[in-house]
Nucleic acid binder design. Structure first.
Lengths: 329, 329
DNA sequence: CGGAAGTCTGAAACCGATTGCAGAACTCTG
DNA sequence: CAGAGTTCTGCAATCGGTTTCAGACTTCCG
């Protein structure tokens, strides 16, 4: 059995209230009493019961994290970041995976919302009004998506796309293809838009191949369209798709990067292991997790006092083996 | 503000005790009263406060899950399984990632153990006595490791290795290399042992290349040893290493599977995306997660009444592109 | 019809912390 | 030295449920 505050109090010869104060508002108690209490607590291995504390303070000490699919390599990194930062602040992380299922997501949210002080939500495709409704009742931070002025952490896709386009332009490419992810995904829309702007500014031609599932298979499916479109370079919605492209392009007898250059987005582990290795717009996923927790905790501290609730993380083009000079024939 | 049990009681015209009973021990209350209570609860959107309940019952409704490194693709699948099964039983999952750091692990365990009813622990390399000590104070289930008679979920490595060896033998291989993972890892030891037995039984020669970090880089590092050893086939501790092997072998000018056959273990997503695709001993990782939760909840229900606390999950060789007939020159 | 057994319900204690309030002890100040 | 002001501590209420216990009311049976 774990020690209770009463036992510590008895052991230290004070009242429970004093123990409570000595531990959570140390400057309210006399230094020598405090010392005595702390020693007693130490000796008994006392740790406050979270349920009891939560009951009166109304806080759980937990944050919830909801991701659409852990099997997508983007998310484990995010989770790691959230996890690490949360622990530093002595919060525990309740993790839930919705399996890309909106109904499951709604359920999860209902259940989870009661067990946590705040939520970090990755819901690229959930309905906006659902999210707004949720935000009205819970403190939440969105990741990889913006909904109005709600707190969020996103990546600077615009700059990422600019870098990618500049890189291709420098290599002599004039026509670039886009292999899109889910039409309904916020970041997909954000990236297309950014890419349109960037290519237009660079005087390059953009050919959109359409929308595909954001997986390896999606890239495979898109490859033939890309070849047919005659572009010399292509940017994919994410690395997984870019890797699928690579695979199918090779099977079609094309040489990357001699015949065609390929750029992904995310910088997942795998992109450094493919051959050729994948040039990609690197996202600091773990940073995003940490930033989300940061923001969430700040909001919990002072619901209105946070200046900047919409954070944008930098992106960085990572040039590897899948991009090269455009063929000139 | 959420409704409390008292408000429901008032609304239904009964006492709080009756509400409590109507919800958690329905057959103790008169059907018509029960109906009235349930309707009131429904109307007010009542959901019991977990902290309050936990305070008196001593249960949190949480299970803890500790993994060494989410970035290793083995674990997200496991987490998914744990997650899904836990939710079915109305438990929440507290996730922690130790970053392969034993000190962090100890800390985490201390903190987490108090917030959960039971723990699922993947600690391939933690000290046995630490684990035993923990098991004495907490209900826990180990995954991918056996420690004495403690509850655990592991894979049938012996059979997996038998299948792999039989496959290679059928392809005419006589000499097989082993690229080991961390020496201190339980499953590494289990697999080597199984492989020794299997190759001996098949009359094949086994060459152990040593121990390497269980990552892509480990496989790269091992490749040259493998080539020098002159084996025609090689089995790696896990897929990530096998993929590293593939990469380096290719760079050394070897053709897989013509010059050498490669087999991994795990069946991670990536192994279907490499070229050649990777033949591997497939582990049902999500199943393992579910099984661990199953076992844990059973133990929580009736600490002594569980017949079989050491579960072993089947393994299945998945033949893909990286294995072929042995060269005969 | 009386009493035993059974069925429901409510009052109250309790889980383990936090916190408002009040009083004790001490320090200052004029 | 009286009185005001500080500083520190303890009492008791409280959070929102669960559970023990006892009592009210039925039902059943001899």
């Amino acid at each position: 059995m774990r020690a209770t505050i009463r036992e510590v109090a008895r052991d230290a010869g004070v009242s429970p209230s004093t123990v409570s104060r000595a531990l959570s508002m140390p400057d309210l108690v006399n230094p020598v009493t405090r010392e005595r209490v702390l020693r007693a607590a130490q000796r008994l291995g006392y740790e406050p019961n979270r349920a009891a504390r939560g009951l009166i303070t109304g806080r759980t000490g937990n944050v919830g994290l909801i991701v659409p699919d852990l099997a997508n390599p983007f998310f484990p990194s995010l989770v790691k970041g959230v996890q690490a930062k949360a622990r530093e602040a002595d919060y525990a992380v309740l993790l839930a995976d919705t399996d890309e299922d909106p109904a499951a997501e709604r359920d999860l949210l209902r259940v989870l919302a009661k067990q946590v002080d705040g939520l970090i939500l990755c819901s690229p495709r959930g309905r906006e009004e659902d999210i707004r409704a949720l935000a009205a009742t819970t403190t939440l931070v969105m990741v990889n998506r913006r909904v109005g002025k709600l707190p969020s952490v996103v990546f600077d896709n615009a700059d990422g796309m600019r870098q990618a386009v500049a890189h291709l332009q420098a290599l002599g490419h004039r026509r670039v293809g886009w292999v899109g992810g889910p039409r309904s995904s916020w970041s997909n829309r954000d990236r297309v838009r950014a890419l349109q702007t960037a290519t237009a500014a660079a005087g390059m031609e953009l050919l959109v191949a359409g929308n595909f599932p954001p997986q390896f298979e999606g890239g495979i499916a898109a490859a033939d369209l890309v070849i047919a479109s005659g572009v010399t370079s292509v940017i994919a919605y994410n690395d997984l798709m870019a890797l699928g492209l690579l695979d199918r392009l090779r099977n079609r007898g094309m040489d990357v990067p001699r015949d065609i250059s390929v750029i992904g987005i995310d910088d997942i582990q795998m992109s450094a292991m493919s051959s050729p290795t994948l040039t990609t717009v690197s996202l600091t996923k773990e940073q995003a997790g940490r930033a989300a927790v940061d923001l969430l905790l700040a909001l919990l501290e002072q619901p209105d006092g946070v200046r900047n609730v919409r954070r944008e993380l930098p992106t960085q083009l990572l040039v590897r083996g899948s991009t090269g000079v455009a063929r000139t024939d």
